[in-house]
Simulated assay, not measured.
Amino acid sequence: METLLFRFENGQRKQPQNAQLVGVVSSGNLEVLISAADLNDGCEIEVQTAANGFGPIWQAVMRDFQARWNLADTRIQINDMGATPAVVSLRLDQAVEAYLEGKA
């Protein structure tokens, strides 16, 4: 298992206080837990992955995700069992969309 940590500064979109879990860890999939955290407008993402050595790919996917959503004061935990970058992006977008629905 490899642990990767990413932090993005100066986010603009703050999230509600509830947490949201999307996906299930199983063969070739991942789960995403997203929650509010006091991070001085930052967004922190921790990835636990069974696929070692893919840090640059994860970094590119996380940078693209943050560019789309521009999250602030948000902590994201990802548990991965070898999902493709497309699945990672899909699950992250699903998590944020479900999280935003909790705002209403």
Score class of each variant (00 low, 15 high):
Arg13Phe: 01
Asn10Arg: 11
Ala95His: 04
Gln20Leu: 04
Leu4Asn: 01
Val22Gly: 06
Asn29Val: 00
Met1Gln: 03
Ala86Ser: 12
Lys14Ala: 06
Phe65Gln: 08
Arg75Phe: 14
Gln94Gly: 04
Asn40Arg: 11
Gly55Glu: 14
Gly55Pro: 07
Glu31Arg: 14
Trp69Val: 06
Arg63Gln: 15
Ile34Lys: 00
Ile78Asp: 01
Gly55Asp: 13
Asn79Ser: 13
Ile57Tyr: 10
Arg63Trp: 08
Lys14Pro: 05
Asn40Asp: 15
Val61Asp: 11
Gln77Glu: 11
Gln77Asn: 10
Phe6Met: 00
Gly53Leu: 08
Ile57Arg: 08
Pro56Ser: 09
Phe8Val: 07
Leu4Gly: 06
Leu5Ala: 06
Ala86Trp: 07
Ala95Trp: 03
Gln17Pro: 00
Ala50Val: 15
Met62Ile: 11
Gln20Asp: 01
Gly23Glu: 00
Ala83Ser: 12
Gly42Ser: 13
Met81Ala: 15
Leu21Ile: 04
Leu100Phe: 12
Ala83Arg: 09
Leu71Tyr: 04
Leu5Pro: 01
Met81Asn: 14
Val47Ser: 05
Val96Arg: 08
Val25His: 02
Gly53Ser: 05
Glu101Thr: 03
Glu44Ala: 14
Asp93Pro: 00
Ile76Ser: 01
Glu97Pro: 01
Pro85Leu: 08
Asp64Lys: 07
Tyr99Gly: 08
Glu46Val: 15
Thr84His: 11
Thr84Gln: 10
Val24Ala: 05
Arg13Lys: 10
Asp80Ala: 07
Arg91Tyr: 11
Ile78Gln: 02
Pro85Lys: 08
Gln59Asn: 14
Glu9Leu: 10
Glu46Thr: 15
Asn10Thr: 04
Gly11Arg: 08
Pro16Arg: 04
Ala36Tyr: 15
Leu33Gly: 00
Gly55His: 13
Ile34Ser: 02
Ile78Lys: 03
Phe8Gln: 02
Asp93Tyr: 05
Arg68His: 12
Gln94Val: 01
Glu97Gln: 13
Gln94Tyr: 07
Val25Thr: 02
Asp80Tyr: 03
Gly42Lys: 09
Met81Asp: 13
Asn70Pro: 04
Gln12Tyr: 01
Gly53Glu: 09
Thr74Glu: 00
Ala95Pro: 00
Asn40Phe: 12
Leu21Tyr: 04
Gln94Ser: 09
Arg68Glu: 14
Gly102Glu: 11
Pro85Gln: 04
Val61Ala: 15
Phe8Ala: 07
Gly23Arg: 05
Val61Leu: 10
Asn40Glu: 14
Pro56Ile: 05
Trp69Thr: 04
Val25Cys: 03
Lys14His: 10
Arg91Trp: 02
Ser26Asn: 07
Ala72Phe: 04
Asp73Gln: 05
Gly42Val: 04
Ile57Gln: 13
Val24Lys: 13
Asn52Cys: 12
Pro85Glu: 06
Asn18Val: 02
Ala50Phe: 11
Asn52Asp: 14
Asn18Ile: 03
Gly23Lys: 02
Thr74Val: 06
Ala83Trp: 04
Asp73Ile: 08
Gln66Ile: 02
Gly55Tyr: 14
Asn70Arg: 13
Leu4Lys: 02
Ala98Gly: 15
